[in-house]
């Protein structure tokens, strides 16, 4: 029985659309960054789309997530508005953070997106607090920490897995193991090849999942979400995946990875994999695929146009929002 059987074609098409949206958004963000329209630094999520979309497809809008410096994908997967995202990247007042955050700090608390976070492992504790809040609210909410292989070596990962396990917090810890922490290979800094095996130290389930197989990600996440909602506590899910692009979009960004390795992973494109599966199962034809592509690009163009016609903040707005009223 195909793994995808318990996912309706509609839901799978929606997943495909979201992954495609992330990919096209990132391509545009990279291009506009190199064109000087987006400032600072941009980290692209291309190649890892199945993780954000697979996990977020298993969540409700009221569930909360936190992201990393590579946060566009999680924002889109949780339902963020492309216009406000792009406006934020463009440094405009209409952006999610009124131009105060930029690419590394997209947040939308209204949809449970507690922010991209520029500090590796910085968000893990914060979203564990959201998990504690969900437990205290008692409405069955869950919280999800997205983080990378690099963060799994940092203190907050271990501290929070221990606390979440001890307190049975409704948490998913989703490690996107893209094999590199910035430019350093995970193999050089991890004694064990599977980060998920660390779950045993905290007495919680640890699963290794093919992070480029969105159905596998969705199913693992769904089981972990069920477990969390039932009060049984947190899970650690390690999604093995790969980022196609360098750590950041900076020109001359050093990238020590072998070309062959990058090319081999590109052959395992998560978007193409779902597309093929859907077509094989009769859930998508060429015409629908082209329409989807057109609609995704149109939404992106609309977002870019919104960003471009949005005003920059007034300089003195730099003094606002330091404190809440």
């Amino acid at each position: 029985m195909p793994l995808s059987l318990n996912l309706s074609p509609d839901k799978q098409r929606e997943m495909l659309r979201q992954m495609l949206t992330i990919r096209r958004f990132e391509e545009r963000a990279s291009a506009d960054y190199l064109a000087g329209k987006i400032y600072g630094v941009v980290h692209c999520y291309i190649g890892e789309e199945a993780v954000a979309v697979g996990v977020c497809s298993a969540l409700e809008k009221s569930d909360r997530i936190i992201s990393t410096h590579r946060g566009h994908g999680h924002s889109i997967a949780k339902g963020a508005d492309l216009k406000r995202m792009m406006a934020e990247l463009y440094g405009r007042r209409t952006g999610y953070c009124k131009g105060k955050g930029g690419s590394m700090h997209i947040a939308d608390f209204g949809i449970g997106m507690l922010g991209a976070n520029g500090i590796v492992a910085g968000g893990i504790a914060i979203v564990t607090g959201a998990g504690l809040a969900a437990q205290m609210e008692g409405k069955g909410g869950v919280a999800v920490a997205f983080f990378g292989d690099g963060a799994s070596n940092a203190g907050p990962f271990h501290e929070c897995l221990n606390i979440a396990a001890s307190w049975k917090l409704p948490m998913l810890y989703v490690c996107e193991n893209n094999l590199y922490a910035a430019q350093t290979a995970a193999a050089a800094t991890h004694a064990l090849s599977d980060i998920a095996s660390r779950a045993a130290a905290y007495g919680i389930p640890g699963l290794v999942v093919d992070g480029n197989d969105i159905v596998a990600v969705y199913q693992a996440a769904s089981r972990a979400v069920d477990r969390a909602r039932s009060g049984a506590g947190p899970s650690l899910i390690e999604c093995k995946t790969y980022r196609w692009r360098a750590h950041t979009e900076r020109r001359n960004q050093p990238d020590p990875r072998e070309k062959e390795e990058i090319e081999a992973w590109k052959k395992r494109d998560p978007i193409l994999a779902l597309e093929r599966r859907l077509k094989e199962e009769g859930g998508l034809d060429e015409g629908e695929r082209s329409t989807m592509e057109r609609e995704v690009l149109a939404a992106l163009e609309e977002a870019v146009a919104f960003a471009e016609r949005s005003p920059f903040p007034l300089p003195e707005e730099a003094g606002e929002d330091v404190f809440s009223a």
Binding site: R64, I66, F109, L114, G122, I124, A125, I126, V127, T128, G129, A130, G131, L132, A133, A134, M136, E137, A143, G155, P156, E159, C160, I163
Partner: peptide
């Protein structure tokens, strides 16, 4: 470190 972060997350969650 964890307690401080958990406090931040719980504060941002109401």
């Amino acid at each position: 470190a964890a307690l401080t972060g958990i406090g931040i997350g719980a504060a941002g969650s109401g």
